[in-house]
Nucleic acid binder design. Structure first.
Lengths: 216, 216
DNA sequence: CTTGATTTTCATCAAACGTTGAAATAAGTT
DNA sequence: AACTTATTTCAACGTTTGATGAAAATCAAG
């Protein structure tokens, strides 16, 4: 594969990422992607296969680098705490920080990608294909770590807590700007630091409340 | 409008609701909806206008009865507590219970509808049209109530907390069944009572942790 | 420069898309 | 019953869809 081909392919993937994130899988045509990439229609098929393959490629491209870092952070906080179990806040941070920091400082490509993930995650049609395949294995590792951090917790509570965390995180990516309007400008979702410093304690408190039934 | 027409219209709306929820707005064709409703294609336009109108009608149909009840529950818990401010858990309950109970016991139509709402909520293209128009006014009332329940909290924290709650709730509707597999059968998302008894304390704890910085 | 592989262009395919007008039927009213 | 309105059927419109085969252009290597 020559150099020209490589950049063409990347232009197609970038355009596809942008449009898929904005309008969903079915909301975009291959021709529209080709036009946005300033490329002939046939080149999309030549470089990226059919529309389904193109979508999966777009989805996988950043998932790999993302989950590699998340796993590295999880292991790091594990080793840092050893032989004690890792701290809950650190686990949640390892889960969310690589995403939020890229959403804030990774450029428009990353921001669009997260919007795409949010859409896939909330789509009955796409979630079973994309999310379970590329993210669930990682999730299981995080669940295991949380189990260590909260040894008295019941599995059912842990899974549900994770589920709520996943929802809160996901919506943050999907709705860039909507909370800003709702709050009349008080919240700025572009300021991901302010999101992060709230999401972690919020969800950690939820985990603890659910998993340690101090009172009930 | 005669009786036959009324049932035809309802068959179309039901079919549209089901298919939109499964595959999204662009993932379904008008012809497909007509086929599922066992109705001629032209009848879709005759009874429900163009595809955009059909979608909005489907979206609005249940939103009205839903938000009416949510608002009633909010006012009820307000009056119950008066002159004291309402309890945070009661406010969250008023926000979530009408949804969760219908998802559990309202039948397949309601379950599909919530999946549709989840999709719309996480779509950059559809959220500004559907959610802000039909749900945001209600949300502002809940925000106001929470402000009373947590008088020391900063607005920014309240809005973000609401945002996380919205995400957790939304994903629950979108992913019926996925947490079940992820947890290896430990969680049963069909058992909405078990969701509800976790979601309320989880998010309430998050709210409190964020809005009352006891330690930091 | 020649040769062979890679990449791009161009034209086209059958199928499905949203929408509609006009004719046919059913329902409602006097 | 006659007449009007509401509903349903049927056929078709112009576009757009995803996909591809064959030719043209570009590139890599000897």
């Amino acid at each position: 594969m020559g150099k020209a081909a490589h950049t063409t392919r990347r232009r197609i993937l970038d355009a596809a990422e942008k449009l898929f994130a904005e309008k969903g899988f079915h909301g975009v045509s291959v021709r529209e992607i080709a036009r946005a990439a300033d490329v002939d229609v046939a080149l999309v098929n030549y470089h990226c296969g059919r529309k389904n393959d193109l979508f999966e490629t777009v989805f996988l491209r950043r998932a790999e680098v993302l989950n590699r870092e998340r796993l590295a952070m999880l292991n790091a906080c594990r080793e840092r705490a050893a032989p004690d179990p890792p701290e809950l806040e650190d686990i949640i941070d390892a889960f969310t920080h690589p995403l939020l920091t890229r959403s804030a400082r990774g450029g428009a490509g990353w921001r669009r990608y997260f919007a795409l993930v949010a859409q896939v995650n909330n789509s009955p049609e796409l979630a079973p294909i994309g999310m379970t395949r590329y993210f669930d294995p990682l999730v299981q590792q995080f669940i295991a770590a949380i189990r260590e951090a909260l040894p008295d917790a019941r599995d059912e509570d842990i899974y549900w807590s994770y589920h709520f965390l996943s929802g809160a995180l996901t919506l943050t990516f999907a709705q860039t700007g909507r909370i800003d309007k709702l709050s009349g400008g008080v919240c700025r979702s572009s300021d991901l630091a302010s999101v992060h410093e709230r999401l972690v304690p919020y969800t950690a408190a939820g985990f603890r409340r659910l998993c340690k039934p101090d009172k009930d």
